[in-house]
Amino acid sequence: MTQMACPQLISSASSSSSLNPNKLPYPSIPNLHFPSQPLLRCRLLPHLRRRRRHDSLHCSASSFSEKHHTNSPKSDDLVELPLFPLPLVLFPGAILPLQIFEFRYRIMMHTLLQTDLRFGVICSDALSGTADVGCVGEVIKHERLVDDRFFLICKGQERFRVNNLVRTKPYLVAQVTWLEDRPSANGEEDLDGLANEVETYMKDVIRLSNRLGGKPEKEVGDLRRNLFPTPFSFFVGSTFEGAPREQQALLELEDTAARLKREKETLRNTLNYLTAASAVKDVFPSS
Rank of each mutant, 00 (worst) to 15 (best):
269 N>L: 14
66 E>T: 13
119 F>Q: 08
251 L>S: 01
185 A>Y: 12
91 F>Y: 12
99 Q>V: 15
144 R>G: 01
239 T>R: 03
119 F>S: 03
184 S>L: 07
29 I>Q: 06
247 Q>D: 02
209 S>I: 05
154 C>P: 09
37 Q>A: 13
153 I>R: 06
108 M>Q: 04
95 I>C: 07
84 F>E: 03
258 A>R: 14
168 T>H: 06
134 G>E: 11
264 K>G: 13
252 E>V: 13
276 A>W: 08
146 V>A: 02
269 N>C: 10
42 C>Y: 02
100 I>R: 00
52 R>V: 10
12 S>K: 00
193 G>E: 11
234 F>K: 05
32 L>K: 02
251 L>K: 12
72 S>P: 03
106 R>N: 06
145 L>R: 07
240 F>T: 08
104 R>S: 11
87 P>K: 00
33 H>I: 11
167 R>L: 15
236 V>Q: 00
70 T>K: 02
269 N>M: 12
35 P>N: 05
131 A>F: 13
24 L>F: 14
278 S>R: 09
286 S>W: 12
61 A>Q: 03
29 I>V: 03
278 S>M: 13
79 V>I: 15
279 A>M: 10
9 L>M: 10
125 D>H: 07
211 R>S: 13
198 V>R: 01
59 C>G: 09
19 L>R: 13
91 F>C: 05
271 L>H: 03
226 N>Q: 01
161 R>S: 11
34 F>Y: 06
254 E>F: 10
279 A>R: 04
225 R>N: 07
200 T>I: 10
237 G>W: 05
169 K>M: 14
225 R>F: 08
112 L>P: 07
96 L>C: 06
262 R>V: 12
194 L>E: 12
280 V>I: 13
41 R>I: 15
169 K>V: 15
254 E>Q: 14
26 Y>C: 06
260 L>A: 04
28 S>A: 08
139 V>N: 07
146 V>G: 00
286 S>I: 02
260 L>T: 15
211 R>K: 11
224 R>M: 05
120 G>N: 09
157 Q>W: 00
110 H>F: 15
145 L>C: 05
147 D>W: 04
97 P>L: 09
57 L>M: 10
137 G>F: 13
204 D>W: 03
164 N>I: 15
126 A>T: 15
195 A>L: 02
137 G>T: 14
200 T>L: 04
246 E>C: 14
268 R>N: 10
170 P>D: 09
98 L>W: 03
109 M>A: 04
117 L>K: 12
159 R>H: 09
32 L>H: 00
228 F>T: 13
85 P>W: 12
58 H>Q: 12
220 V>P: 03
242 G>F: 09
274 L>S: 01
179 L>D: 10
110 H>V: 14
24 L>G: 07
30 P>W: 02
52 R>S: 08
233 S>F: 06
55 D>H: 03
65 S>V: 11
159 R>Q: 06
273 Y>E: 09
250 L>D: 01
17 S>Q: 05
281 K>E: 10
199 E>Y: 01
56 S>N: 04
171 Y>N: 09
273 Y>M: 08
233 S>A: 05
203 K>D: 01
73 P>N: 12
262 R>C: 13
266 T>W: 08
158 E>F: 04
215 K>H: 07
203 K>R: 06
212 L>H: 09
54 H>V: 15
219 E>T: 11
271 L>V: 08
18 S>V: 12
140 I>V: 14
